[in-house]
Design a protein around this nucleic acid. Structure first.
Length: 500
RNA sequence: GGCCCGUUCGUCUAGCGGUUAGGACACCGCCCUCUCAAGGCGGAGAUCACGGGUUCGAAUCCCGUACGGGCUACCA
């Protein structure tokens, strides 16, 4: 039997000596890490960091049908992308492993032996068909449904004989008959009581010997000395069952914190219909990990009710269970996008330049080699997009006109800004005036074009828009003079010629 | 059916017996301005799900109701 390092009060089972918290994130590798799981991971991680505790990653891969190594790899990749590092778990090791449930069979067997010996587990020979019939019958009557404990009344000798004879059986927990309400001490919801009479003798070990979720998770939480279980709301109703297992194992019951679900805009469970749901999908759509982390942290938790931009460091030092909210949250893509833009704006030119290269490369505009050859030019690009981009995926389109010799002019843009006489005069004059500039830089370009407008007696806007459309192909672009400076004199001139 | 949980602007939230119910996103207006943004200023938007209590006083405490959600598997 694994034991806890904490001294525990023999009556309450509560720790009476404070130990540093140990929390775990235990995803099932049956799919990609989605937004709900990621938020659970963030909270566990932040809590561990803020309390000086330990964050354990455990892979709950007991479902052989749906669990895959690729999913496990993707989950770990997603966590690391978010900047969430685990202190114990796959690839980093730890003293209380293994950290895959499929490798912990010996632990489950030992725990089950302990329960058999103490009489808190008993074999059940009822067949699936019989159980289905019992369930159907129970549903007709009013009382609580659940297993009717037929095999619990079996004579122990008979049970042993049937096991020896090789009869298929599962092992069920023997729920104490006279137990008072099971009270879940939840950091988010307070104390909630469940009548123990509503707990049926659920299965601990299947016919094939493998543990069920409610059993395995408790054995592991005990074995890994987990002090705080922070997980989704959907587990709240299972918690009293698990508490029964903790007690049967003579182990201290951890503190719980159940997080409400995350919904889509229609109040339904978040699904692909609502857009991206996996962490990698958000990554691919141009969201920054620090922005997603911040947004996720705020989806059900608040620092002070005022602050919205919260750094990783602040989160890791200020996070607390007390400030988790009880209500389900609807995922607001608009707010995430705003937040992502805020992070893009805050980034240093050097950092953003480096980070936008892969996106430019993917769009076929830039290459790592080109970046290495002229980093200054790329850094100068940053101010053009930093204030405008909401996601990294916005950037290539904003800068595309700076790459390549020519540019295709949008027909509607041409109609709007090039079709008038004033526009054509402006463009013609700009061509000549710009050609005379010897020092091709922002101020000179601006002065030249402004003077031009005065000379032609047209509004500066007319000149600017005409040049903008001729050079960038669109009525919407980054600031004009910076753009021309970065584009270079030759290409600017050629494009104006082409537009005339 | 049984057992649990939840309900404050459209959305995320603050609030933990006495507040003009605060902030953020989104929205609207003005300013700035070479377009688009960003930024600044301002606005609209919440009878705190509903009904009863308790209290001098309730968004805050208690009890119901309604509506959502979860669990009730040899799934996690």
């Amino acid at each position: 039997m694994p034991t806890s390092p904490a001294l525990t009060d023999s009556t309450s089972g509560r720790s009476i000596v404070s130990v540093s918290p140990r929390v775990r994130f235990a995803p099932s590798p049956t799919g990609a890490l989605h937004i709900g799981g990621a938020r659970t991971a963030v909270y566990n991680w932040a809590f561990a960091r803020a309390t000086g505790g330990t964050f354990v990653l455990r892979i709950d891969d007991t479902d052989p049908e749906r669990s895959t190594d690729e999913n496990t790899a993707q989950i770990m990749r997603s966590l690391r992308w978010l900047g969430i590092e685990w202190d114990e778990g796959p690839e980093v090791g730890g003293d209380l492993g293994p950290y895959f449930q499929t490798q912990r069979g010996a632990h489950y067997a030992r725990a089950l032996d302990h329960m058999k010996a103490s009489g808190s587990a008993y074999p059940c020979f009822c067949t699936p068909d019989e159980l289905a019939a019992k369930r159907a019958a129970a549903r007709q009557s009013d009382g609580p449904s659940g297993y009717d404990r037929t095999c619990r009344r079996l004579d122990p000798n008979e049970a042993r004989a049937r096991i020896d004879a090789g009869e298929p059986h599962v092992w069920r927990i023997a729920v104490p008959l006279d137990r008072p309400d099971i009270v879940v001490d939840d950091a988010v919801r307070g104390e909630t009581a469940f009548p123990s009479s509503a707990m049926d003798d659920f299965v601990l070990a299947r016919t094939d010997g493998t543990p069920t979720y409610n059993f395995a998770t408790v054995v592991d939480d005990v074995g890994m000395r987990i002090t705080h279980v922070i997980r989704g709301d959907d587990h709240l109703s299972n918690t009293p069952r698990q508490i029964l297992v903790f007690e049967a194992l003579d182990a201290p019951v951890p503190r719980f914190a159940h997080l409400s679900m995350i919904w889509g805009a229609d109040g339904k469970k978040l699904s692909k219909r609502h857009g991206a749901t996996s962490v990698e999908a958000f990554r691919d759509e141009g969201y920054l990990p620090e922005a997603l982390l911040n947004y996720l942290a705020l989806l059900g938790w608040s620092l002070d009710g005022e602050t919205t931009i919260i750094s990783r460091e602040t989160l890791a030092s200020q996070f607390s269970l007390e400030r988790i909210s009880k209500n389900p949250a609807i995922f607001d893509f608009d707010k995430l996008e705003w937040m992502n833009g805020a992070y893009i704006r805050e980034m240093s030119a050097d950092a953003l330049a480096k980070r936008m290269i892969p996106w430019l490369a993917e769009a076929g505009l830039a290459t790592e080699d080109d970046f290495a050859a002229r980093p200054d030019w790329y850094q100068a690009l940053v101010p053009l997009v930093a204030e405008r981009a909401k996601r990294m995926t916005d950037i290539p389109a904003m800068l595309a006109f700076l790459f390549g010799e020519t540019v295709a002019i949008e027909p509607t843009a041409a109609d709007k800004a090039l079709a008038t006489d004033d526009a054509r005069r402006s463009l013609q004059a700009a061509l000549e005036a710009l050609g005379t500039i010897t020092k091709w830089e922002h101020d000179a370009i601006e002065q030249t074009l402004r003077d031009l407008a005065v000379t032609l007696e047209v509004k500066p806007k007319v000149v600017f828009q005409a040049v903008r459309v001729a050079v960038t192909g669109s009525t919407v672009s980054p600031p004009l003079f910076e753009s021309l400076a970065l584009l270079g004199k030759e290409r600017t001139i050629r494009r104006i010629e082409a537009a005339l």
